[in-house]
Design a protein around this nucleic acid. Structure first.
Lengths: 280, 280
DNA sequence: CAGTGGTCTAGACCACACT
DNA sequence: GTGTGGTCTAGACCACTGC
């Protein structure tokens, strides 16, 4: 499957100047002629450098969500390090939820498509412990239009004011009861071609669609929660009383390399549901 | 400091029946006469068993919050395994925030007393990125009384209805502006002797007080968030309008062994602050 | 300097999945 | 059986801390 040692440009770019241990510096005289690529300040442990190289392959699309990546042994040969070092790199990527190990089968690129029981980023649960005792959410797309980024949206997405963005508004319901109103802003260039029809026809998580149709994988997200009052139009969309308390969830989602790729503002009805969070 | 091999009862309680590798089964004929202690179903990797033994020492108070634990080498000798195996056990305990490694100094029992910049479980931040640009919170204890557990409180704390509990109500303020109203329920037996005076005089995090005065270390917590409306008495305590939206945060905090030791219900004003959460 | 955790290697064997 | 990740060991050297 993999062809170790054939990746000449990747076989020797490792910075050994600060790598402890005997193995690498003894395994070959790397003339260190290779440039340090881009933003990497180098001077990091070997396994961190390996982690960076694997990350680069993930970003470049060499391995796509759901794919198996080469075995630890193959990667060790390719990068000219020991299997244990590759293992430590993969360990960290696995705890970051970028890779998934499966004993006896291999290591896979994580995906939102079949991520355990899907909807990894949705934390709204019924107060009764009934896990998804209501079936999947029903989606209704209210609008989907291209527009120019406001100063605020541009700031959060790392764009410039006026850059093209796509705005989506939708309502999620459980058992016919509206529960979430979401406004979503996406960079226009990366999501060129996304239409209301595409969204409406799609089943499954929106982040899975982003992966398969636009090659954008959301890796992590930061949310800011507040309690707000429903204004009249929001109330009518959610079927609640004007002035009713709603949980506001403002999320910025990032793809590889901490690049923001989505701004989302959700308003959650929490009369019979709650946002669950675990602290440690 | 440590006296390896002197802990006869701990030197050979490891279940080697399913331990892979050559080292352990070759290092001594453990007659497996030792009983499996208590709830441990055994049949786990060696490092998991080591993790359990370390955990037991943490629970028993052999090593207290802030203490250094024996070096990896000493622990390896004590448990009759290799240093690498101890290392993997400590790795997991460190990612669980039970232990903290410090290069060149040792491995320490985590504590809420000087946990980075304190208040590890408080997620309410000012909307302006000014990290604690307002100084520490001002605390005002409103009441502190012993009572009997309601059915609901008993259920959440793993007690029986009517068992003695301690209830505390307090207000936290920033720059003189009330921001949080908290009701806290604690098991009466574990916190015998906790008085309003103790709480009022104490500076620093409440969880640090729990550690030093009652030997109770909170390890993790689960929170349920909702948006609610301020009722009149809450509003007056928080200085907000009746009916104003508040963020309700219901927390159950656990000590070692997933034993619930605190139920806390906070009401947060979120006009100029937000609850921050990171998803991955 | 000695002692600690941190990194790296090499080789062994186990547990699991597929064929 | 073959190949994968998972565990375990042993020994080396590096980086940091404090005596």
């Amino acid at each position: 499957m993999a062809t170790p040692l054939s990746h000449a440009t990747e076989a020797t770019p490792l910075d050994t100047r600060t790598s402890p241990g005997t193995g690498v510096s003894a395994s070959g005289e790397n003339p260190s002629a290779s440039a340090p690529a881009h933003g990497t300040p180098a001077f990091s442990p070997l396994y961190q450098q390996i982690k960076g190289l694997i990350l680069r392959s993930l970003q470049s699309g060499e391995w796509k969500p759901g794919d198996v990546i080469p075995s630890e042994f193959d990667l060790a040969a390719r990068f000219r390090v020991s299997q244990g070092t590759v293992r430590k790199a993969i360990d960290e990527l696995a705890t970051d939820n970028l890779l998934v190990r499966r004993q006896g089968k291999g290591t896979f690129v994580a995906t939102h498509a079949e991520q355990h029981i899907q909807y990894r980023f949705l934390r709204l649960l019924p107060d009764t412990g009934d896990l998804d005792g209501q079936g999947p959410a029903e989606r209704r797309i209210i609008e989907c239009k291209r527009q120019r980024a406001s100063a605020e949206v541009a700031r959060q997405l790392g764009l410039r004011t006026g850059d093209p963005v796509l705005q989506v508004r939708r309502v999620l319901a459980f058992s016919g009861m509206p529960a979430i109103l979401e406004d979503i802003w996406l960079p226009g260039t990366a999501f060129k071609g996304l239409t209301q029809e595409t969204l409406a026809e799609d089943k499954g998580p929106m982040y899975a669609l982003f992966e398969s149709q636009f090659g954008v994988r959301m890796v992590r997200a930061v949310e800011k929660l507040k309690a707000v009052s429903a204004d009249p139009d929001v109330a009518s969309l959610l079927g609640s009383e004007p002035g009713a308390p709603l949980l506001s969830v403002e999320r910025v989602a990032y793809t590889y390399n901490d690049e923001p790729m989505e701004l989302r503002r959700g308003l959650y009805r929490t009369e019979s549901r709650h946002y669950r969070n675990e602290l440690s």
